[in-house]
Nucleic acid binder design. Sequence first.
DNA 1: GGGCTGAGTGTGAGCGCTCACAGTCGTTCC
DNA 2: GGAACGACTGTGAGCGCTCACACTCAGCCC
Lengths: 348, 348
Amino acid sequence: MTAQTTAGGGRKPVMSDVARLAGVSHQTVSRVLNDSPHVKEATRERVLTAIRELDYRPNSAARALVTNRTRTVGVVSFDTTLYGPASMLHGIEQAARGHDYFVSIVSVRTLDSRSVQDAVDRLHGQAVEGVLVIAPQTSAAGALAALGADLPIVAVGSGPRAKVPAVAVDNESGARAVTRHLLDLGHRTVHHLAGPANWLDAKARVAGWRAALADAGASAPEPLTGDWSARSGYELGLRLATDRSVTAVFCANDHMALGLLRALSEAGIAVPGDISVAGFDDIPEASFFTPPLTTVRQDFGELGRRGLELLLDRIESGPTDGRPPRVLVAPEPVVRSSTAAPGRRPAG
Amino acid sequence: MTAQTTAGGGRKPVMSDVARLAGVSHQTVSRVLNDSPHVKEATRERVLTAIRELDYRPNSAARALVTNRTRTVGVVSFDTTLYGPASMLHGIEQAARGHDYFVSIVSVRTLDSRSVQDAVDRLHGQAVEGVLVIAPQTSAAGALAALGADLPIVAVGSGPRAKVPAVAVDNESGARAVTRHLLDLGHRTVHHLAGPANWLDAKARVAGWRAALADAGASAPEPLTGDWSARSGYELGLRLATDRSVTAVFCANDHMALGLLRALSEAGIAVPGDISVAGFDDIPEASFFTPPLTTVRQDFGELGRRGLELLLDRIESGPTDGRPPRVLVAPEPVVRSSTAAPGRRPAG
DNA sequence: GGGCTGAGTGTGAGCGCTCACAGTCGTTCC
DNA sequence: GGAACGACTGTGAGCGCTCACACTCAGCCC
């Protein structure tokens, strides 16, 4: 029982300590650790026992140095506080663990391409094997395109056209479906509270909304632009409340819809009696709004998972061949009680 | 311009490539990289130019191997989808970046001590220098206590009594303050929708609520226990709605308060006219509930930041001396319009 | 019997960096 | 004039691991 051969004694045990204790060479220990088939069962047992006895843990830096692999992926996220990014991150992490990868995160405060660049650089410096970017702004998209191909990158939740592989929700079809739902209810047209113009998702939802209106031959009122927050929905809602032609509003996300609901409630306007309201995202709280919100469900967790898998594909199969894949996940409208046929308001 | 000395050619440049190009030794390059004071300005410039020209990036694994430092901290989180954990994670990441540390995350699905153990082990295997745990369940607390001192650990947002250093919100004083607010308004007593019994925060909030009632000589009705979700608040709210003695309810978080609000609304009970409702957390949406919610603000981001700093202290100053520190952050009641003097309901 | 196989194991080099140490200058002092 | 010093730079070893290769020894064939 010398400090050399037992745990607790001196410094942290290394592979040769295990080898000595098990009476084999360091290479055999390495083989056991890496599940090499060419190790006799009895030897393997002996090595495993020694490992346990010493509480030996392989040094990941040494391994990374020689294999040139870290089994770590990086995630660049815009605001991990929002429900969407938080859920995607969660999905990514779960999937990564399943594939025995680590996840290292960097969040960026602002949406300019410099920040995204820096974040990716930082991750690159830490030797991640690939990067997932949750940064659905048009500007970030540009940054990614410029990034250079020495590090596999996948955009999640949205992303630049082409250039970079992406896993995204089909915002357009979701927006289209919920707008059509409102139209089918008998509304002459549907107003829209849009997300920030520099978000790809916001743009796609506007496009889907416009397309549904065009399909129905309805005129498209000028959309009002918010910033995803309940506050902006509230402020915009105050304006909408004074317009007696409004009978249905599609909000680009549930939080803005919540603010709108609040504004309408303060103005004494009934939902859905006077005005129907629909959102987008289906956050867990949406069914407990007053009234429960009709919205479009997107499975953020699934998005994250798919994104990670796409990234792993690229990491393991080497550089791109052909044009980058683009996975679209279909969102699903969820009808609750915030939408109904137009009622007491005078038609627009 | 051979492949040896320029980027783009063959393999990734290493330190000696830079040294050769700059006409110095590898050690001088290392000195420049590590801001050693004893390098002549002209030499430094020459090295930096060479680094830029080759697009050289130091190999972090090699550095970690020899310095035995990774500048990485791990975060173990229970459910990164919830607002609280997501915000703390954000705060941690921001702070870590400020101190030039990386953040690696592992989230656990279930709250048993095995999962927490495994997560910490995983992180340990990746050679993080310390771990922050966002897992405010009593069971996790036990796991941490058992963890052994070879890796610095800090609990964030809550944590076991003693044993492990922690940064937490003073749940008890927050709950006490908001309960007193309700009592001061003239309510005879205050009902409570509690969080899950195995969450430390939930327990502390119950304690604060009880203390405030006791201070006022009010009787404490049996608290109802939910699971933090709006759904559970709704279901419990349905029960509360049938009890005509209820005039004020303090919910253990804002989401449950939202569900309660929904249930009361369906039951035709006015808030705050018939029943006053208060929450805890002050999520960004709370001021847009119907009606805007009186609640207790806790600054999750700050919590994360403080947690990281505490961890860094322990990493840099070596093993514990004395008993683990415990930082309490004071939460702040925010009065909005969901609370008022008792009104039309018959007194209990 | 010699040569082949393949299973099981050991040897030595080297990944890219930092650390400890050892220079080599030019300056200053007595 | 030489010792002493500080500023700057170079040399060699070695961190803990994996990789390529070499080796040993059964078992088996012709």
